[in-house]
Design a protein around this nucleic acid. Structure first.
Lengths: 236, 236
DNA sequence: GAGTGGCTATGATATGTGTCAAGGGAGAAT
DNA sequence: ATTCTCCCTTGACACATATCATAGCCACTC
C-alpha cells in the first residue's frame, strides 16, 4: 500500500503524508481545510469521552494520544496509541454509535476537528478516501485480533517485551536512537500490556537487570533489541 | 443502522436481508450474481488458510464457520463466528495482506465466492456498499476492542458466561428456545473464551451444578438466563 | 468382542500473576 | 526547609488458572 504524496498543497499532508486525507481528491481537501477547527489540548486533557456521541472525526497535527476503555472495575485498558497524522473517532462515527473509548492527550497536542456531515458526505463522493478508510479499519482490526490471541496465550513477560516494541514502532526513538520517544507512567504501560501495575514494574526491573533496557524515571532506553525481540517471541 | 430489504430480487437477500449485498445497487448485484461461485464445504473443511493470499470474499449462504488464529504454540484462538448472511475474508482483501486467520466449517455449509477484482471495482462505484463495509468493519473493531478489555480484566468464569451469551446472540437457540443452535467441542469453547480446555470443562460443570445450564454431549441448554447474565457481569 | 482413537471429565500439583501492604524518592506547593 | 502528594518499588501472600496425569465414555473399525 503506497503512501504517495498525492496532494502537495494539502495542509494535512505537508509534513506527514501518512494522513488519510492525502488520499482525498483536491476539491474535497479544500472543503475540509475550510471547515476544520484546530485546537490545542494540554497533557492529560480529554478530547472525547467514552459514552458520548460523536459529532465528527479528529485528526492529529502533532502530539500523542491514548485511546482507552475503562473496564467495569474502573481499570483502564489502552486500546490504541495515536500519533501525528492519524485520525481518531471514526469508528463510532461509521458504526453510528457512541464512543466506546476515551481519548486523552499524553502530551500537549494540536488536533483538528472535522464535522460529521462534511466527513460523511466527502466519504460518499470520494472512493479513494473510502478505500483508505477501509484499509485503516482492516489494519486496526488485524492488530486487534492479534492482540486478542496474544492476551489469551502469551505470558505477561512476552507481552511486555512486545509492548515495548509496539511503542517503538508507533512513536519511534529519540535522537540517541535508543530512548522511546514518549513518557508513559508504569500504570499506563501496564494498561497497555493488560496486567497489574506492579507486575509491569517488576518485569521492567528484570529486563533492566538482564541488560535489555535502561530505566531513568519515565525514560526507557532499549539497549538490546535482539534480546527484546527474542523475549517477545513473535512469530506472526 | 436499518437493514432495509432494498433488493427483493437479490438472491443473497431472499432469505436473509442482513447480507451486506442488500446495500448494493441493483445493477451491481446482477454482476455479483453472475460472477459468484457457490460450493458446499463439509464440516471440518477449511475454506481458507492463515498465510494464504486472498483472491476474493466469501459470502455464507447457510452453515456456520469459525475464524481462528493459530497461536505460536499451535493453540488456536477463535476470533469470530460466522453465520448465514455474513461475509468473510474481506479484511485481508481490503488491507491487501495475507489471511491472518483460518476459516473452518463448523457444519456443512454453502458458501459463495466473489472474485477480488469484481468486489473491489463494485466497492469503488457503489458508495452505499462501501458504507456498509465500513459499518461492518467498525462494528467488528468495536467488538474486538471490547474483547481485549475483557480478556485483560475479567476472570475466566465471567468470560465463559459471556461466551455462552455471545454464541446465543450469534447462532440463536433451537426450537425448545433453550438449546444453543450449534455444536462446539469443549476445546473450541475454550479457544473462544481464551482459556485451557480443562478450565472450560470444569467451569461448565460448575454452571451445571448451579442450575444455570444443562449439558448433554455437545448440546448446551441455557436454563437460567438471568443468572448467566449476572455471572457474565456485563456493564458495557 | 476386543481394540483404537477422540472427546470428556476429574484430581493433584505447580506456578504465574494479582492483590495487599509498606516504604522510598522526586518534585511541587506552602 | 518542610510538608505533601504522586508515583515508583519491593516484599509477602493468596489465589486463579495452566499443566500433567489418569480414567471413563462413546463411536467406529477390524
Amino acid at each position: 500500500m503506497s503512501s504517495t504524496f498525492q496532494n502537495p498543497s494539502c495542509q494535512h499532508c505537508k509534513d506527514r503524508f501518512s494522513s488519510i486525507f492525502c488520499k482525498a481528491e483536491q476539491c474535497n481537501l479544500e472543503q475540509i481545510d475550510q471547515a476544520k477547527v484546530c485546537s490545542i489540548y494540554k497533557k492529560g486533557q480529554v478530547i472525547f469521552h467514552e459514552g458520548a456521541y460523536p459529532f465528527g472525526v479528529y485528526c492529529i497535527n502533532n502530539g500523542k494520544i491514548k485511546l482507552s476503555h475503562s473496564g467495569d472495575d474502573g481499570r483502564e485498558q489502552i486500546i490504541r496509541l495515536v500519533k501525528a497524522g492519524d485520525i481518531m473517532g471514526y469508528k463510532a462515527l461509521l458504526s453510528n454509535e457512541r464512543y466506546t473509548a476515551t481519548a486523552t492527550a499524553l502530551e500537549d497536542s494540536s488536533i483538528c476537528f472535522i464535522p460529521k456531515d462534511l466527513f460523511m458526505s466527502i466519504l460518499q463522493k470520494d472512493a479513494s478516501l473510502s478505500f483508505e478508510m477501509m484499509r485503516i479499519l482492516s489494519s486496526e482490526l488485524r492488530k486487534a485480533e492479534l492482540k486478542i490471541t496474544h492476551l489469551a496465550q502469551k505470558p505477561v513477560r512476552e507481552r511486555l517485551a512486545e509492548t515495548l516494541l509496539f511503542i517503538k514502532e508507533t512513536y519511534g526513538l529519540e535522537a540517541d536512537s535508543q530512548t522511546l520517544n514518549v513518557r508513559l507512567s508504569r500504570e499506563e504501560i501496564a494498561n497497555l500490556v493488560g496486567t497489574a501495575t506492579e507486575s509491569a514494574i517488576r518485569l521492567l526491573s528484570e529486563f533492566k537487570k538482564d541488560g535489555m533496557i535502561e530505566l531513568e524515571g519515565k525514560k526507557i532506553r532499549l539497549l538490546d533489541m535482539t534480546e527484546i525481540i527474542r523475549t517477545a517471541n513473535l512469530q506472526d
